[in-house]
Structures are given as structure tokens and as C-alpha cells.
């Protein structure tokens, strides 16, 4: 890629907006998942008794929490994909057209 094209794209306000927004959003999603997952693993490791409390008949607190972690992975992917395929792709399109 030619050096002038690179510097032109890098100074494009749309590009600056895209990298700031997508960067922050992507890291938020990734770090949220790490925090949720390791919070669960640490609970399993150190607060076993709390997770073994029966909340509904024989069903323990571990069940809803475990399913919630599983579900959160799916939801986090979904949230990212919706925003990336809409807002971020629109911005990318503008940048690419301007760079032509």
C-alpha cells in the first residue's frame, strides 16, 4: 500500500472515529467475557458452599449462574456482531470509498 494512502486514511476523521469506537467496544466485550468467566471459576474454586444453596427444589444456585455464563458468551458475541455489522461496517464503507 502506498505511503500517502496510508497517511490519508489514518487522518480520515471517519477512520479515527472507527478505530476509537471499535477498539473500545471490542476490548469491552473481550474483557467482560474474561471477567464473567473467571468470576465464575473463582466462585466454583473458593465459594462452593454458596453455589450449593438450593434455590428451587433440588436445583442449586450453580445452575442458573452456569447457564447465565453460557448464555453471556452467546449474548456478547451477538451484541458485538450487531454493532460491527451495522455501525462499524457503514463507517468502514465510507473510509474505503473516500480512499479510492
Amino acid at each position: 500500500m502506498a505511503a500517502d494512502l496510508v497517511s490519508r486514511v489514518k487522518t480520515d476523521p471517519n477512520f479515527i472515529e472507527l478505530e476509537a469506537k471499535r477498539g473500545a467496544f471490542g476490548w469491552t466485550i473481550a474483557i467482560s467475557m474474561v471477567v464473567i468467566y473467571f468470576a465464575f471459576i473463582f466462585m466454583v474454586a473458593f465459594f462452593k458452599d454458596a453455589l450449593s444453596v438450593q434455590v428451587y427444589g433440588v436445583i442449586t444456585l450453580a445452575f442458573p449462574l452456569g447457564i447465565l455464563v453460557l448464555f453471556s458468551a452467546f449474548v456478547l458475541v451477538g451484541i458485538y456482531v450487531v454493532r460491527a455489522n451495522g455501525e462499524f461496517d457503514d463507517l468502514t464503507k465510507k473510509i474505503v470509498e473516500k480512499a479510492r
Binding site: 467496544f25 471490542g26 476490548w27 466485550i29 473481550a30 467482560s32 467475557m33 474474561v34 464473567i36 468467566y37 455464563v69 453460557l70 458468551a73 452467546f74 456478547l76 458475541v77 458485538y80 456482531v81
Partner: peptide, 10 residues
């Protein structure tokens, strides 16, 4: 399953 959000977002 928890590797997927990392993969898609980063």
C-alpha cells in the same frame, strides 16, 4: 464456549 467473544471482538 467463552473463547468465542474474544475471537469475534479482537
Amino acid at each position: 464456549l467463552v473463547g468465542w467473544p474474544i475471537l469475534v471482538s479482537l
